[in-house]
Simulated scan of single mutants.
Amino acid sequence: MRDEHHKGKTFWNLFMENHKTLLKNAEKWVKDTTNSCMIVSTLIATVLFAAVFTVPGGNDDKTGFPLLLGKDSLLVFTISNALGLFSSMTAILLFLAIITSRYEAQDFLYSLPKKIITGLGFLFLSLAFMLVAFSATLTIVLDKRVEWVLIPITLLASLPVALFVVLQLPLLLQMFRSTYGQSIFSAEDIWSEA
Rank of each mutant, 00 (worst) to 15 (best):
D32A: 11
M130S: 14
D32C: 10
R177G: 06
L159F: 15
Y110L: 11
R177L: 10
S80I: 01
V149A: 15
E188K: 13
V132D: 03
I116C: 00
W191H: 15
F164A: 07
F53R: 01
S111H: 14
L74E: 03
L75R: 15
A157Y: 02
A194M: 12
L127S: 05
P113G: 07
R102V: 02
T54D: 07
A157S: 15
V40E: 04
T46H: 01
A187C: 05
F15Y: 15
A136G: 04
W148L: 13
R177Q: 11
L48D: 07
T118V: 10
S73Y: 07
I39Y: 01
L69D: 06
F11C: 14
S158H: 11
V40Q: 09
E147L: 14
K62V: 14
S183C: 07
F65I: 08
G181L: 09
D107V: 00
S135E: 09
L85W: 01
S126P: 00
S87Q: 07
M1Q: 08
E193K: 10
W191M: 10
D107N: 08
V55S: 07
D61Q: 13
E147T: 15
M16P: 00
A194Q: 13
V166P: 00
T118I: 06
A105T: 14
K71N: 13
F108D: 01
S41W: 03
A187H: 11
